[in-house]
Each structure stands twice: as C-alpha cells, then as structure tokens.
C-alpha cells in the first residue's frame, strides 16, 4: 500500500484520538466525514491543523476545494503530493 496513504491514516488516528483504530481499519476511499468514518466539523479543523504542522499545507475553511480535499485518504494524499513540503 502507498506509504503516504499509510502515513496520513496514522496522522488521522493520532490527531483525532481515534481510540481502538489502526491504519488498516481505514480504507483509503472511505468518506471521512458524515457517512463513512463519521468524523465531524471539529475533526475537520483539527485535521487541518495536523496537516499544516506535518506538511505545511495551508487550507482555507471557506474554500470550496477544501471539502473535496477532505473527502477521503486518497484525496488527502493527492493534496499532500501536490502541495505538501517534505515532512
């Protein structure tokens, strides 16, 4: 499996304190918010800060593309590929 995807899954688990979950439990294409993993808006903000800390990615809350980037692990990996600085 893609190591960047693995890394992002580990980041999600740590930043959002997902008790009892391991990276294998998060399918790369499962929706993160609402139906799917069931994360909420506070998680979105928390994840935004974690992505900024680790990869230097700046996200605008009001930007319509942000919603698209946060769809699943695959879309986050694509974002980090295109905009992220090396961790």
């Amino acid at each position: 499996m893609d190591t960047l995807e693995q890394e992002i899954k580990a980041l999600i688990i740590k930043a959002l304190n997902l008790e009892d979950m391991s990276p294998q439990d998060i399918a790369s294409d499962i929706p993160l918010f609402g139906e799917g993993l069931g994360l909420d808006s506070i998680d979105a903000l928390e994840l935004g800060i974690a992505l900024k800390k680790k990869y230097g990615i700046e996200l605008e809350a009001g930007d319509s593309s942000t919603r698209e980037h946060f769809r699943n692990v695959l879309s986050l990996a694509a974002l980090v590929h295109s905009q992220g600085k090396a961790a």
Binding site: L16, N17, I42, D43, L45, E46, I49, K52, K53
Partner: peptide, 9 residues
Amino acid sequence: EEMSPTLFS
C-alpha cells in the same frame, strides 16, 4: 502554536 479546536470546544 495553533490551538486545538477539540481542546477549545
């Protein structure tokens, strides 16, 4: 540092 939204809420 950025403040944690979870902690804040």
